[in-house]
Design a protein around this nucleic acid. Structure first.
Length: 325
DNA sequence: AAAATTCCCAACCGCCGAATT
DNA sequence: CAATTCGGCGGTTGGGAATTT
């Protein structure tokens, strides 16, 4: 049977974390690694459940987290991956370095979803709510193709995500080993920095606009002894690599992300309802009267660009090195 | 200036699958 | 093989901040 909720124990604190609690959690993980989350709170002197500690660590305290506004490229990546993967935030997060699934999920729900809706695009299916105009543009065939390819692509991206998770796990184990053998091992931050951050509002002053790249480490992928076998329900992992295909698809993904094609499509599309000049989080500019997503006159063109950009993502190169298609 | 409303996000909840006993 | 434990995921929400009335 199921287990009882871990926070049901009397006396366990819930709600927002205090700086003192953060410091305890950080200090413990810095010194010992997190180990078993279940037993961590007691060892760390926290009156929290392990789940709460894990969440706090993964979504906030981890040193490799990037906070602040999402840049254009990150937004594009989220939209593209969401079109392929749906609400699989953890899989999407593996392609957005330093972003947590929770943050991406929040950003999608509070910003991107609304933006798509305003553009007349169904945020679930990523199709225009009224198909007719696009059909007349001759896109219906493309849409069918997209649907088919997206199934494969979805499986591929999911496999990438899995690999990324596995490699992260390996790194974590490596780190934990290090932490246990080096009691004062520094993992890239100090209590001081944490407390400094707490004196200002989190999120506010840590905006970095780094150029994102896939968290899937290509070298790790190359070293991986894993082969993907597609199936209707997902992927089976068996031994021995098929490096060429993996690397080529990853390369396609990466070049597509950096390429000008999608940039153009999404930039025009998404910037349309937002502020001009790259200040991209200025949603308040999307006031009534501004037919967000651009001019009404540009509606069809915009949607065409939107679909095109996804087509480009799914099928980015004319040569199409993927054996799947 | 104050009240009402909306927005945003950290954190919780419940479920699931994998691992362990 | 069943029961249990654990970590992880996605959906949801509470409450503070920001904005509007």
């Amino acid at each position: 049977m199921g287990r009882s909720p871990c926070c049901d124990k009397l006396g366990l604190k819930k709600g927002p974390w205090t700086p003192e609690e953060d410091q305890k959690l950080l200090a413990y993980i810095e010194e010992h690694g997190h180990g078993s989350w279940r037993s961590l709170p007691e060892k760390a002197g926290l009156h929290r459940c392990g789940k709460s500690c894990r969440l706090r660590w993964t979504n906030y305290l981890r040193p490799d987290i990037k906070r602040g506004k999402f840049n254009l490229q990150e937004e594009q990546t989220i939209i593209q991956l969401h079109a392929l993967l749906g609400n699989r935030w953890s899989a999407i997060a593996t392609h957005l370095p330093k972003r947590t699934d929770n943050e991406i999920k929040n950003y999608w729900n509070t910003h991107l979803k609304k933006r798509l809706v305003k553009m007349g695009i169904d945020p679930v299916t990523h199709k225009p709510k009224n198909e007719t105009p696009l059909s007349s543009l001759g896109l219906s065939k493309n849409a069918a193709t997209l649907s088919h390819k997206a199934q494969w692509e979805s499986a591929r991206v999911e496999a990438e995500a899995r690999l990324a998770r596995e490699s992260k796990l390996l790194h974590l184990q490596h780190y934990q080993t290090k932490a246990s053998s080096h009691p004062h091992h520094n993992i890239g931050f100090t209590h001081k920095t944490l407390l400094t951050n707490w004196t200002t509002k989190p999120n506010e002053d840590q905006q970095q606009l780094e150029s994102p790249k896939s968290t899937v480490s290509f070298s790790e992928m190359k070293e991986s002894k894993i082969e993907f076998v597609g199936s209707s329900t997902g992927l089976t992992l068996i031994k021995e690599p098929v490096h060429d295909w993996i690397n080529s698809t990853i390369h396609e993904f990466e070049t597509t992300q950096m390429g000008e094609g999608i940039e153009e499509g999404f930039t025009g599309l998404l910037l349309g309802g937002d502020s001009i000049g790259g200040s991209f989080s200025g949603e308040k500019n999307e006031t009534a009267g501004d037919s967000s997503g651009g001019d009404c006159n540009n509606y069809y063109e915009d949607n065409k660009n939107y679909l095109d950009s996804i087509f480009n993502f799914v099928d980015p190169s004319p040569s199409d090195s993927s054996p799947m298609f």
